[in-house]
């Protein structure tokens, strides 16, 4: 499956278009990591626990979007956009969407 954030898949011709597909996930880290992040907040620097959390969630969201596109018969997703929001305390919400297409 081709995933791009451009409007086309460079070097390929788009044959069919299936509309917007999306994937989303909400994940929380356990309270131990939250506390560690709170301590780290005092000194600054990378919050590894949270980086990991967001990366995991993003992968999961992309997989879900791919699953949706595959079911519709697409083999590529173009113009992919990410958005992150914090809808619950200590939990991250990742949303990814794009246009499902079939390329030759």
């Amino acid at each position: 499956m081709f995933i791009t954030n451009t409007e086309t898949v460079p070097g390929k011709n788009i044959i069919d278009c299936f509309g917007v597909v999306s994937g989303s996930t909400v994940r929380a880290k356990h309270v131990g990591r939250d506390i560690m992040a709170g301590i780290k907040n005092v000194f600054g620097g990378e919050l590894r626990g949270y980086t990991e959390l967001l990366n995991e969630s993003r992968d999961e969201a992309i997989n879900r979007m791919k699953a949706q596109a595959t079911e519709m018969g697409a083999n590529a997703i173009v113009n992919v956009r990410f958005s992150t929001s914090s809808v619950a305390a200590g939990a991250a919400e990742i949303y990814v969407y794009g246009t499902a297409v079939r390329v030759e």
């Binding site: 278009c17 999306s22 994937g23």
Partner: peptide, 16 residues
């Protein structure tokens, strides 16, 4: 390019 109206059969965006 042609538009193919389709809906996914299952919803992978909702976990168990």
């Amino acid at each position: 390019m042609a538009y193919q109206p389709r809906l996914p059969k299952t919803n992978p965006n909702i976990g168990r």
